[in-house]
Design a protein around this nucleic acid. Structure first.
Length: 752
DNA sequence: TCTCAACGTCCCGCC
DNA sequence: GACGTTGAGA
C-alpha cells in the first residue's frame, strides 16, 4: 500500500488520531495520497467501509475516487459514501425529511431557476430591476444563506436601507421556495446544517456512523460546508485528545471522527460562490490538535513550469509560502506568442499543434487549450474546423443547460411537484398556446387571493377574474394536459416514458420538427438524447422513478460523461474546468489585461488575487510544454478592443520565456513604426466601425472615475481619478502599462 | 396575444 | 455577436 510514495505522502497515508490537514501543492500526488489513505484505513486499520465519508467537489472526482479505491481494495469500497457535498446533503435530507416537516420529495432549483424566481420576487416587490438586478440580489441572498442567517435576525440586524431590502427580498424569496417545495443549491447544505443543529440526536447518529470524514479541495469550502463538516465530525474542542480506536459505545458521547482534509490555498478559485480560503488557512486554529503535512514535491511539471508558477503566485499577499520543486529537470522554455487578433492566435495554436504532431513530440490528445471565458472558445473552434484539427470542448453550454432540455425537464418537474411554480410558469406557454402575461397575472392573483399555489390556480382557472374567455380555454386545455400526464406518472410510468409523452402531447417535438431552422434539428436530437439518458437511468441499479431521475439530473449538472473523445482530440476548456487535470502540452491563451485578469477583477485586490490563483492553476496543469499567447486586437462583443499584455506574463521571470513573436514596440509615433500586419488589422477594424484614434478631428473625451478607456499606446485602461475644475486631467490605470496621468485634451484616448 | 425588430445586456467561473 | 427583453403594430 505504501510503495512508490515519498516520506511525506506516506506519513499522510498512515496518520492516525486527530485531525489531519494535507497541504498539497499542484501535482504533488494529492489524489493518490487520498485514495491510498482510504485503502489503508479499510485494509490495514480494519475500518468498515460504511464508516467512511469522502467528500469531493465534483461528481466526476467522486466517481474517480470510488473507482481508484475499488481498484485497490475491491468491491467492498462500494459501501462507503463518496459524494459531493450536495449529493450527500440530499441523501441525508431525504432520509431525515420527517424531522424537518419537509416533503420526502422536493425540487432542486439550479442557478437558472433561482434567477427566475428572484426575477418574480423583484417584480412583485416593485423593485427597480435596473438598480437591483436579480443576479445581484441572488448573490446577496446567497451570501446571507451561507452565513446561516435566518431572515428575522437579518432584518433586525440590518443597518442600512440596502441591508433591510436584502433581508426583505431574502424572506420573500425563501417563502416562495418553501411554497414551491423547492430547495436551491445553498439550501441543500444550510438545511442540513440546521437539521443537525436542531436535532442533536440526528447529528449524533451520523457521527456514530461516519468515523472517517475526508474532504478533498478543502480550500473551496464555504462557510456552510465548513459548519457541516464540523457537525459531522463532532467538535473535538472540549473532548479528550481525540482517542483513536476508542470503542464507540451505544450510549456514551461519540468521540470525534477522524477528519482528513486536503487542499491548496493557492488553488482556491471559487470565492465567487462563497468559498473562503480562511477555512484552510485557519484549519489548525479550528482544530487545535491538528497535524499538518506539506506536500511540495511535484511529480507533474518541469522546473521551468514550476518556477513560472511559483513566481506568479508569490505576488499574492498573506499566503503561506510554499515552494514547488521537482527533480525532473528544467525542460523546455515557455514559448510566448503575440498575435494580431484572436484568429491569428488560434492559427498559431493550430500550427504549433501540427508541428508537434509532425515531429512526433505530442499527440493532439496531449494538448489542452485554456481560456478565461467560454466565449473565447469560438475563435479556436472556427480555426480548428477550418484546418481539420479534431477537438472537443469541455464545459461550455452544457447539455442540461440547453433551453429545450430545461423546458422539457420543467414539464417533468411540474408533473412531479405541482407546487413548483417556477417550472410551471416556465412551460405554461411553451410551446405557445395563448396563455400570455395577462393570463398569468390573473392566475397569480387568484393564487394569492385563495392562498393556493400557482399550480392549484391553474386547475381552478374558472374562478379567476379578468381572464378572457379565450385565455380561460387555453388554461383549461393546459390543465387537462397536465392532469393527463400526471395520471401517467401516477400509474408508475418511468421517466423515459413520461418524457416521451411530454414531447408528443405538448406538441413540443412537433414544433421543432416542423421548423426550418437547422438549430431546431439539433434541439430535437438533444431531446431524444434526454429520453435515452432517462432510459439508461431506469436500467441502472437503485433507480427511483421520476423523482429520482430529476434529483440526479439536478445534481449531475455537468454532462462530463461525454465520450472521452479518444486519442486524437485537442481539449478546449476554461481555466476553471481545468482544475485537477494535467496535460503534456498546455496553451494559456488570451493573456491580456481585461481578459485574463478579467475586467471585473481589475479594480479589486481580492479578485485580482483570485485571478492570479487561476493563472497558477493554469500554469501548473502543464507537464512538459507551456505556451503563453495573447492577441493585440480582440473583438469582444462585436467591438474591437486593444488589450495590453496580462500582468501575469510579466510576473514570470522573462528568461523562462522564449518569444516566438513579440509585441510591436509600444511607440508614440503612431502607425508608422508598427508592424505591417498590425496596421492591416487596424485598418480593417477602422472599416468595421472602430473610430480611428490619435488622428485629427477627435472630440475631447470627458470621463469619470471607473470609466473604461482605450489609449493608442497603452491600450485598455480604467480611469482612477479626474482632476481639474472641468476635468482636464485624468489618472488612468493601464494595468501592466502602468498608471498614467493624461491631459484629456491631447491624449489619444477614447471612452468605451 | 403574437410577431417582429430595436434595444440593451451579457461575457466569469459551478454544485 | 448572441441572447433575452421590450415596445409597437397586427
Amino acid at each position: 500500500m505504501l510503495e512508490g510514495l515519498n516520506p511525506s505522502q506516506r506519513e499522510a497515508v498512515v496518520h492516525s488520531g486527530g485531525p489531519l490537514l494535507i497541504v498539497a501543492g499542484a501535482g504533488s500526488g494529492k489524489t493518490r495520497v487520498l485514495t491510498h489513505r482510504i485503502a489503508y484505513l479499510l485494509g490495514e486499520r480494519g475500518v468498515h467501509p460504511g464508516e467512511v465519508l469522502a467528500i469531493t467537489f465534483t461528481n466526476k472526482a467522486a466517481a474517480e475516487m470510488r473507482e481508484r479505491v475499488e481498484a485497490l481494495i475491491g468491491p467492498r469500497a462500494r459501501m462507503m459514501w463518496v459524494s459531493t457535498f450536495h449529493s450527500a446533503c440530499v441523501r441525508i435530507l431525504r432520509r431525515e425529511h420527517e424531522h424537518l416537516g419537509l416533503p420526502s420529495s422536493f425540487t432542486i432549483y439550479d442557478a437558472d431557476d433561482s434567477r427566475r424566481l428572484m426575477t418574480q420576487v423583484a417584480r412583485d416587490l416593485d423593485l427597480d430591476v435596473k438598480r437591483n438586478p436579480p443576479r445581484g440580489l441572488l448573490a446577496a441572498v446567497s451570501a446571507l444563506k451561507n452565513e446561516l442567517v435566518d431572515h428575522e435576525s437579518a432584518r433586525d440586524a440590518a443597518e442600512s436601507d440596502r441591508e433591510a431590502l436584502i433581508a426583505e427580498v431574502y424572506s420573500v424569496y425563501q417563502n416562495r421556495l418553501i411554497a414551491s417545495r423547492a430547495l436551491d443549491f445553498d439550501d441543500l447544505i444550510m438545511t442540513t446544517v440546521n437539521l443537525f443543529q436542531a436535532f442533536p440526536a440526528v447529528a449524533e447518529s451520523y457521527r456514530r456512523r461516519f468515523r472517517h470524514v475526508l474532504v478533498d479541495e478543502y480550500q473551496d469550502t464555504n462557510q456552510a460546508q465548513y459548519v457541516l463538516v464540523r457537525e459531522l465530525v463532532g467538535t473535538s474542542a472540549a473532548s479528550s485528545p481525540a482517542g483513536s480506536g476508542a470503542p464507540v459505545t451505544e450510549d456514551g458521547p461519540v468521540p470525534p471522527a477522524e477528519l482528513c482534509v486536503v487542499g491548496d490555498a493557492d488553488q482556491s478559485i471559487y470565492a465567487f460562490r462563497g468559498a473562503t480560503i480562511r477555512n484552510i488557512l485557519e484549519f489548525e486554529a479550528d482544530y487545535p490538535d491538528a497535524k499538518t503535512i506539506l506536500l511540495e514535491q511535484n511529480y507533474r511539471s518541469t522546473q521551468t513550469i514550476l518556477s513560472a508558477a511559483n513566481a506568479v503566485i508569490e505576488r499574492n499577499r498573506g499566503r503561506k509560502p510554499k515552494n514547488l520543486w521537482t527533480d525532473s529537470g528544467q525542460g523546455e522554455p515557455i514559448v510566448g506568442y503575440v498575435a494580431d487578433s484572436e484568429h491569428d492566435e488560434a492559427a498559431f495554436v493550430a500550427n504549433e499543434v501540427d508541428r508537434l504532431t509532425d515531429e512526433g513530440l505530442a499527440k493532439p490528445s496531449d494538448v489542452a487549450v485554456f481560456y478565461r471565458t467560454n466565449a473565447q472558445s469560438r475563435a479556436f473552434e472556427e480555426c480548428f474546423i477550418r484546418v481539420g484539427l479534431p477537438y472537443r470542448v469541455v464545459g461550455g453550454v452544457r447539455f442540461y443547460e440547453r433551453k429545450e432540455v430545461k423546458d422539457v425537464l420543467a414539464y417533468l418537474r411540474a408533473l412531479a411537484n405541482p407546487d413548483d411554480s417556477v417550472s410551471l410558469k416556465r412551460v405554461i406557454n411553451v410551446p405557445k398556446r395563448g396563455i400570455g402575461d395577462r393570463a398569468e397575472a390573473m392566475l397569480d392573483a387568484l393564487a394569492a387571493r385563495e392562498r393556493i399555489s400557482f399550480g392549484a390556480a391553474v386547475d381552478r382557472a374558472d374562478e379567476a377574474y379578468g381572464l378572457a374567455a379565450r385565455s380561460l380555454n387555453a388554461v383549461r386545455g393546459f390543465a387537462a394536459l397536465m392532469a393527463d400526464l400526471r395520471g401517467k406518472v401516477a400509474e408508475g410510468a418511468g421517466p423515459s416514458e413520461v418524457l416521451e409523452a411530454i414531447l408528443e402531447r405538448t406538441g413540443y417535438l412537433a414544433e421543432l420538427q416542423e421548423s426550418t431552422d437547422p438549430q431546431d434539428e439539433s434541439r430535437a436530437e438533444n431531446l431524444q438524447e434526454l429520453v435515452a439518458v432517462a432510459h439508461e437511468y431506469e436500467g441502472a441499479e437503485g433507480s427511483e422513478g421520476v423523482t429520482g431521475f430529476l434529483e440526479r439530473v439536478a445534481l449531475v449538472a455537468d454532462a462530463d460523461q461525454l465520450p472521452d473523445g479518444g486519442e486524437g482530440m485537442i481539449t478546449l476548456m476554461t481555466l476553471h474546468t481545468a482544475k485537477g487535470l494535467e496535460f503534456p502540452v498546455v496553451f494559456l491563451t488570451g493573456l491580456e489585461e481585461g481578459v485574463f485578469p478579467h475586467t471585473r477583477a481589475l479594480g479589486n485586490v481580492q479578485e485580482l488575487e483570485e485571478e492570479r490563483r487561476l493563472a497558477y492553476v493554469g500554469i501548473t496543469r502543464a507537464r512538459q510544454r507551456l505556451y503563453f499567447s495573447r492577441a493585440v486586437l480582440r473583438s469582444a462583443w462585436g467591438a474591437p478592443s486593444y488589450n495590453p499584455q496580462s500582468r501575469f506574463v510579466e510576473e514570470v521571470p522573462q528568461e523562462l520565456i522564449t518569444w516566438e513573436r513579440e509585441a510591436p514596440a509600444p511607440s508614440s509615433t503612431a502607425f508608422g513604426t508598427q508592424t505591417p500586419a498590425l496596421t492591416a488589422s487596424a485598418n480593417k477594424s477602422r472599416k468595421t466601425g472602430f473610430k480611428s484614434l490619435g488622428t485629427s478631428g477627435r472630440e475631447p473625451v470627458s470621463v469619470v472615475p471607473g470609466d473604461r478607456v482605450v489609449h493608442d499606446t497603452y491600450g485598455l485602461g480604467t480611469v482612477v481619478a479626474v482632476e481639474g475644475r472641468t476635468g482636464e486631467h485624468a489618472t488612468v490605470d493601464f494595468g501592466s502599462e502602468g498608471v498614467r496621468k493624461l491631459v484629456l485634451a491631447f491624449a489619444p484616448l477614447q471612452k468605451l
